[in-house]
Design a protein around this nucleic acid. Structure first.
Length: 785
DNA sequence: GAGTTTGAAACT
DNA sequence: CAGTTTCAAACTC
């Protein structure tokens, strides 16, 4: 790490800051003065600016958050401070962080403020998280830019922040905490950049991360403010010393830790979902394959540590992991920095922008390999939504859209994410949620091959990776079957793809719209307005629909606290089991086909149903047992559902694993959901499990507090978050009873459903759709009036 | 992939 | 609230 001398010095300095001696010292060292006072202030100002945007824009997709969360988690570990000497720089960063986080982490700040060296432990953790955030945020910002929808930008930051905050770790960031972080994000981001710059030189491997991260960061900087970019440049240049130190430090670190760090990164990337880009890059086969396992373990360790937030041992572990992670970040940065440096050397003036561009190009290149290339930035930029987060992510097709997709993607993290997912979940849980949303897709995208559950992947990927189509490509029937199975269950919102021709995707006919997600590439819709670009229109339309039917976007299937509406349960009676909110009106399908929303949702028909000849395998209207398995159709259906459920479970599991967030998903998501909490959810589906309990409610609370919500997309965030919840639900359902999940997710709003809607919809589990629906409910909650 | 069926959503 | 129309998913071939 750093030399003790430095630490001591820093400590002493902190002690004497107020003292004349301190002042004198400051005067002696030019660096110091700048950092402590000016920087922090600047950051603060920045931070302030940023926060509003975040909160303001609903869009911020959960996805983004999820992304952040994912990344953050991994990143969090690094110890920038250690390097120190940079004490000044670090200190400044810390200060800024401290300032930002003071509300939350007064102690840490105090430590930091008082003694840099001392503070390092806690501060390091926070910083790491912050760093992560920073990296993440930048990407998001880029995404926004890409998206081109100005409105999104602000939200993104906020979302990101939120997500970041949670992820980092602190295990239980309250909504308020998240908000604060959000505010501080901008500042932190700067600080992180500095740190990163310092770190960069060291970085070796993880080019992918680097590229992805750096470019994003650059973009962020650029977008945010030219001045910042310049500042970054300066930082980048400066780092050499710090970087050396870091490198030294890194060398000191155990190899295992380093690996962990790498892994962590990978995970993060995966987890981040939203940031698919990075994740993808990172997830590249070589790295991911080897590292994933370790990363998982590491993540778990980290998460646990963070969750516990216990000082010593935890701190150490965290610090180690963070360091490793950070290192990864640094490495990325390093690469970028090096590139930049070279560039800068050649072209001092434009170096930053150029470097950014280059980085971007690199990123794209990297991305392209797995992804289509476009997606991340160009396309996905997304944003966020959530779904993009799941939302956030998803952001649609073009850039914005993609972002949405990303959100979804988030919900569906690639296989790698899946692997990691469990660990991520833990971490995400801290976060949120997330990615939500949602994030499902992302993971899948990343690893198309991952699960059989592809459908989810399809959904998620649509934007970037394998679209559902691609997936189908393998074999039409299989695809269809798979899709059906997967989708059936719920298909999932994240994955949803519509084929609207006349509704412009602004009516409930559109599954995407109904799910509260933006349409993405995979969609075959025509004249689609359900895109980030038309956010206003979407929101307005949504409001109209909600005005007509407040529950229009609420999950159609409501579950009671009890777990999934199992076939065995009495459909009618069971309050416990899930029920369709409105009930179906089937006349010819006997409630044995997906035409039936109850069946599609995996729930039995209830009294509220007006169906004729109900044979719903999940539960007949008349109360006859869910025969499901019994009857042929039922069998088929049941099998189908069972399969679907299984698939869902798998997907869920995956998603959960994937998620952070994500919305999600996810989704995207993630996601998405997807945001603070949402974001987590989105990102880490993994978090979902937690999210459900934690993030879910927390997210809502946060979101509500934030006042978010307007847009679907904000919803998208919700999606992500929701997805997370769902994910969690699913997870719970899988492992444990869904009930828990339900309870968590629902916030009361959804409750609307006749049955107890405790949870979002079970069906959702089966399908992402459900999740989405649930998500929508959130929006509804946030009254748009 | 095109066409049909189905039931929800939207409209009156 | 009921009836009709519109719509897009689900399904079939």
């Amino acid at each position: 790490m750093d030399t003790p001398d430095r630490n001591q010095i820093s400590a002493t300095l902190s002690k004497f800051e107020d003292s004349p001696v301190f002042n004198y010292i400051n005067s002696l060292s030019p660096i110091k003065p700048v950092k402590s006072v000016p920087i922090s202030q600047t950051f603060n100002s920045l931070s302030f600016s940023s926060p509003p945007s975040v909160f303001t824009s609903p869009h911020v997709s959960c996805l983004k958050e999820s992304r952040f969360l994912r990344r953050h988690i991994p990143v969090a570990t690094s110890k920038p401070k250690v390097s120190s000497e940079d004490v000044n720089k670090v200190h400044t960063s810390e200060e800024t962080l401290a300032d930002s986080t003071r509300a939350h982490h007064n102690p840490s700040k105090l430590q930091e403020n008082t003694g840099k060296g001392i503070s390092v432990g806690d501060a390091s953790v926070e910083l790491s998280s912050e760093h992560i955030k920073f990296s993440v945020e930048q990407p998001q910002a880029l995404n926004y830019n890409n998206c081109g929808s100005p409105g999104y930008d602000p939200p993104l930051c906020g979302d990101e922040d939120n997500t970041l905050l949670e992820l980092p770790g602190e295990a239980a960031p309250g909504a308020g905490y998240v908000q604060e972080k959000c505010k501080t994000d901008s500042v932190e981001g700067e600080v992180h950049l500095q740190e990163i710059c310092q770190m960069e030189p060291k970085s070796e491997g993880s080019d992918c991360y680097w590229d992805s991260l750096i470019p994003d960061g650059l973009d962020m900087l650029i977008f945010n403010s030219p001045g910042e970019a310049e500042a970054l440049k300066g930082l980048m240049h400066k780092p050499s010393d710090s970087s050396k130190r870091l490198s030294d430090f890194m060398s000191l670190l155990p190899l295992s830790t380093i690996h962990n760090g790498r892994k962590m990164h990978i995970v993060d990337s995966v987890a981040s979902g939203s940031e698919h880009e990075i994740g993808d890059h990172c997830s590249e086969p070589t790295i991911t394959a080897t590292n994933t396992d370790q990363t998982q373990d590491n993540l778990a360790n980290v998460a646990l540590v963070t969750s516990n937030s216990n000082e010593n041992a935890n701190d150490q572990l965290v610090s180690v992991t963070h360091r490793a992670i950070r290192r990864r970040c640094l490495d990325f940065e390093m690469v970028n920095v090096q590139r930049k440096n070279t560039d800068d050397n050649s072209n001092p003036g434009s170096s930053a922008s150029e470097s950014d561009e280059r980085n971007v190009a690199n990123d794209k290149q990297l991305l392209p390999a797995k992804r289509n290339g476009n997606f991340q930035r160009g396309i996905l930029p997304g944003i966020g939504l959530h779904l993009n987060a799941l939302a956030a992510l998803k952001e649609y097709k073009g850039i914005q859209i993609e972002s949405l997709s990303s959100g979804r993607q988030l919900s569906l993290p690639s296989s790698t994410s899946l692997q990691i997912s469990t660990s991520l979940q833990i971490s995400t849980f801290q976060e949120h949620q997330h990615l939500a949303l949602v994030p499902v897709s992302s993971e899948r995208e990343l690893d198309p091959s991952d699960n059989g559950l592809l459908p989810a992947e399809d959904c998620s990927q649509p934007s970037v990776y394998m679209t559902g189509e691609d997936f189908n490509m393998n074999s039409p029937r299989k695809k269809k079957q798979v899709q059906r199975k997967v989708e059936t269950p719920g298909e999932t919102e994240g994955c949803k793809r519509c084929n609207c021709k006349k509704s412009k995707c602004l009516k409930l006919y559109c599954e995407c719209f109904a799910a509260g997600v933006y349409c993405i590439e995979p969609c075959s819709c025509q004249d689609c307005f359900n895109k980030p670009v038309h956010e206003d229109t979407v929101l307005q339309t949504r409001k109209q629909i909600e005005s007509r039917n407040p529950l229009a976007f609420a999950p159609k299937v409501i579950r009671n606290s009890d777990s999934v509406p199992e076939i065995g349960d009495d459909p009618n009676k069971t309050p416990a089991s899930a029920r369709h909110k409105r009930g179906c009106n089937c006349k010819k399908s006997s409630c044995l086909k997906k035409y039936c929303e109850c069946y599609q949702g995996g729930v039995g028909c209830s009294i509220s149903c007006r169906c004729e000849g109900c044979k719903n395998a999940f539960g007949r209207k008349d109360g006859s047992a869910p025969v499901g398995i019994e009857t042929e159709p039922e069998e088929t259906e049941a099998s189908g559902k069972g399969v679907a459920q299984k698939a869902l479970q798998k997907t869920e599991i995956q998603s959960t694993e994937d998620h952070p967030d994500s919305a999600t998903v996810s989704t995207p998501l993630r996601l998405s959901r997807p945001l603070l909490p949402l974001p987590f959810s989105s990102k880490g589906k993994p978090p979902r499990s937690f999210v459900t309990t934690i993030s879910g409610s927390a997210l809502f609370a946060t979101s509500q507090k934030l006042g978010k919500p307007n847009s679907l997309w904000s919803q998208s965030k919700h999606f992500q978050t929701v997805p997370d919840d769902e994910m969690s639900d699913i997870l719970l359902g899988d492992t444990s009873p869904i009930t828990c999940i339900k309870t968590s997710s629902p916030n009361g709003k959804r409750i609307s459903s006749p049955n107890c809607d405790l949870g979002s919809s079970p069906s959702r589990r089966g399908g992402r759709k459900l999740i989405l629906q649930s998500i929508p409910s959130f929006p509804s909650l946030t009254p748009h009036p």
